[in-house]
Computed example of a mutant assay.
Amino acid sequence: MKVRLLGVGMGPQHVTAEVAHALRSCDYVVASRKAHDDELFAIRQAICDEHGVELVAVTDPVRDREPVDYPATVSAWHDARAAAYAEVIGARRGTAAFLVWGDPSLYDSTIRVVDRVAASLEAEWDVLPGVSTPSVLAARHRIVLHEVGHPVHITSARRLPEALVAGQTNIVVMLGNADDLATLDSLGDWWIWWGANLGTVAEELVSGRVADVLPELQDARARAKQSAGWVMDAYLLRGPR
């Protein structure tokens, strides 16, 4: 048995030649399915159809979205996912693939889960990179993520307050949500480059001084959700110099 983790960016248009070749060598793709109208599952189906590979749906284990102990809850969820995937792969055998949204190295836990799957099945596995969300964000806005001689800090929306307290002034924020946008009022003089559903037909982009564009940004986020039924947003925040 072999398991391949393939980064697919934001959809079929971002599948690299390397990933396409690897995908066609696989017997099937495994993907969690949250509901019958799971749009991200549908995008994976489109990729599989394009490359002639079967997509096998696995019901996604329920996850507590408001845990008391976040790390422990996520770890338990990963265990449940690994067990569900291992059951399917162990029964079907052959070479299985996982299509990872964006790049597997950044704010995605598929590597952690498949490490557990491979250990339980004694299967070999490898990882191929994909187009990351920050790289698409930067390309869409025609910017460099850091200024000359300055670093860039990448974090989740949940941990943005920590980054601000620590004095970070050039921050890529991933896994954004409507609530964290409401907290940006205090950063009125900062500049923001924001994008939702990057690389999809429901893509929305906004940039400018936070105080000037925040209402526009919130409207754009609502449009993205209405259009696609889901929202994945990311943004670069840069403080005044």
Rank of each mutant, 00 (worst) to 15 (best):
Lys2Pro: 11
Met10Thr: 10
Pro12Lys: 11
Gln13Val: 03
Ala17His: 12
Glu18His: 13
Arg24Phe: 05
Ala35Pro: 01
His36Ile: 14
Asp38Met: 06
Glu39Ser: 09
Ile43Ala: 04
His51Arg: 05
His51Tyr: 15
Gly52Lys: 09
Leu55Ser: 05
Val58Thr: 08
Pro67Ser: 08
Ser75Arg: 06
Ala76Met: 06
Ala82Gly: 07
Ala83Ile: 13
Tyr85Leu: 12
Ala86Tyr: 10
Arg93Gln: 15
Val100Ile: 12
Gly102Gln: 00
Gly102Val: 00
Ser105Phe: 07
Leu106Arg: 02
Thr110Asp: 05
Ile111Asp: 08
Ile111Tyr: 12
Val113Asn: 01
Asp115Pro: 02
Asp115Lys: 11
Arg116Tyr: 14
Ser120Gly: 11
Leu121Tyr: 00
Pro129Trp: 09
Val136Leu: 14
His141Arg: 04
Val144Gln: 06
Val148Cys: 07
His153Leu: 14
Arg159Met: 10
Leu164Val: 11
Ala166Glu: 15
Gln168Phe: 13
Asn170Asp: 14
Val172Arg: 09
Val172Asp: 09
Met174Glu: 03
Gly176Arg: 06
Leu181Lys: 08
Thr183Pro: 05
Trp190Gly: 04
Asn197Cys: 13
Asn197Glu: 10
Val201Glu: 12
Ala202Asn: 01
Leu205Gln: 03
Val206Glu: 12
Val206Asp: 12
Ser207Cys: 11
Ala211Lys: 10
Asp212Met: 10
Pro215Trp: 08
Pro215Ala: 09
Arg221Glu: 01
Ala222Asp: 02
Ser227Phe: 00
Gly229Asn: 02
Ala234Gly: 09
Tyr235Arg: 12
Leu237Met: 01
